[in-house]
Design a protein around this nucleic acid. Structure first.
Lengths: 281, 281
DNA sequence: TGATGTGAATGAGTTCACAGCC
DNA sequence: GGCTGTGAACTCATTCACATCA
């Protein structure tokens, strides 16, 4: 362990940091806006502001792509648009399939951002036979029996999973077996994939929870250690006291920081804790 | 600039790294699953596997919360669930509003993950008068005129923006003015907010573009420097050769790496480049 | 002169590896 | 013996500050 990792330490060029890659689409969007307004050149300062990053970061990011700017002047908008598009692989056409056509899947199918910028919805797939044939966003939904055929016939290498959590791994396995090597996962599950397959995750409830964390901080501010009380109004809901905290999982005693006697959070809120995304697929 | 930033370097406890915070919801989900299966304790190894991280990272993450494990044994599931929930602020009730009830907004409203874990959809808001009163996910949509009242009446501090890009900043401003201090933004725009307001962004097209980048790499593998040719099939689309690259934005000449004569990407693909999310709000 | 491009400094996050405790 | 908790090493990312060049 820790020996191999061919990570291309080589000459130069190849090996753009992941953090930079993640920002390229942001720059691209900002540049596209400028391009539409026929702005010929931008400085790192201006473009950084439009993309919501700081200019030093932007310049360093661009330096990984090459020397595409002109000192004393800035960057040529059209040229940069092309270079970034090419770097991201958007100068070619990527057929994608969306699996799981519930609310979310339909939203994705209708999403303008899919159609533009090199992505093309090759098929919508759902496990519900009743959905089959029904057009969503102008594309007829196909039954998941045909998943493998669709992937192969269209040379699809990118798949989007918008199924409930329970179906996600299974769908993922089938996609991968059929040749998909990049997956965008909206289901709230950890997907297991073989090496060589990329998975990116978009998880609505996780994002909300992160916000809640920071929100709590704001409300609690200088409360030194105890869990701050409800910051916003609304908290009581009628039956809020669950059973006696008898089930309280014995804390490892020895002065654990920040709390006394955990109420064990008994009284399981709802049965749908696994956050089923939207519809069966 | 760069002086202030009280960032709590203090004694201990407060100051959980952002990266750790972002993983807590993941651990929580894995733990919830174990809890439902009545598993009493887990080792860092097992839990890490379930959450898709490595065990050292998990242990370090937990160490920021306190010493909640037992050496030689592992972690008490129920106890950890409570501690993480508390740390994330999920032991209280967070009313949220969703603005922009198009496909995506509806998907979010129906999303199980919202209802569980401390979040409660206080209202759905849309700018389309025709939507007003129509129930979505059992909640009547309200017109955006009432946005401020809704925020204040319900003590909402978290808002979700699912409007088209064009409306997002405006909606954001109104949310913030009305007292919202955390925003989850699904619109493909950079939002500008005052200090003290948190914004998290979920951007479908950016995620896809990042996948495309890696996908391209896989296909190109050992092509040393030139942009690899289309990996998947499907590439020609009829009229693919745009006008002469006359408009080609003069590259800064001097041997720029990796490409010759950028085709300037003339012939703008489609007019909907700004990726309007779904529906007016 | 006014911007880029980039080494060097700093900081954040991850991983290692092992002491400490059950 | 087994597993947590954590200093220390390391890797990755951001920021600074300035040499460099149109």
């Amino acid at each position: 362990m820790a020996t191999g990792r061919t990570h291309r330490p080589a000459t130069r060029s190849r090996g753009i940091p992941e953090a930079t890659v993640a920002r390229l689409p942001l720059y691209l969007r900002a540049l596209t806006g400028l391009s539409e307004r026929s702005v010929p050149t931008v400085s790192s300062e201006e473009l950084a502001a439009a993309a919501g990053v700081n200019s030093a970061k932007l310049r360093k990011d661009f330096s990984y792509l090459g020397s595409y700017g002109t000192r004393g002047v800035g960057y040529d908008v059209e040229y940069l648009v092309y270079q970034i598009s090419r770097e991201l692989g958007l100068t070619q056409d990527w057929p994608v399939v969306i699996v799981g056509i519930g609310n979310l899947g339909a939203a994705l199918a209708n999403y303008g951002g899919f159609a533009s910028r090199g992505f093309r919805v090759a098929a919508l797939i759902d496990a519900d036979p009743a959905m089959a044939g029904k057009p969503v966003a102008g594309i007829p939904v196909r039954h998941s029996d045909q998943l493998e055929d669709i992937i192969r016939d269209n040379g699809v290498s990118i798949g989007v999973i918008a199924t409930p959590a329970g179906a996600a791994q299974q769908v993922c396995d089938r996609l991968v077996a059929a040749g998909v090597t990049s997956i965008l996962n909206f289901a709230p599950t950890v997907l297991t994939v073989p090496d060589g397959v990329d998975v990116r995750k978009v998880d609505l409830s996780i994002e909300l929870q992160i916000l809640a964390f920071h929100e709590q901080r704001k409300a609690g501010e200088d409360a030194p250690d105890v869990p701050p009380p409800p910051p916003t109004t609304v908290a009581q809901d009628g039956a809020e006291h669950p059973g006696t905290p008898a089930t309280a999982p014995a804390a490892p005693e020895g002065g654990a920081p920040g709390d006394g006697a955990a109420p064990a959070r008994r009284g399981r809120k709802g049965p749908d804790d696994e956050l089923p995304a939207v519809m069966p697929a």
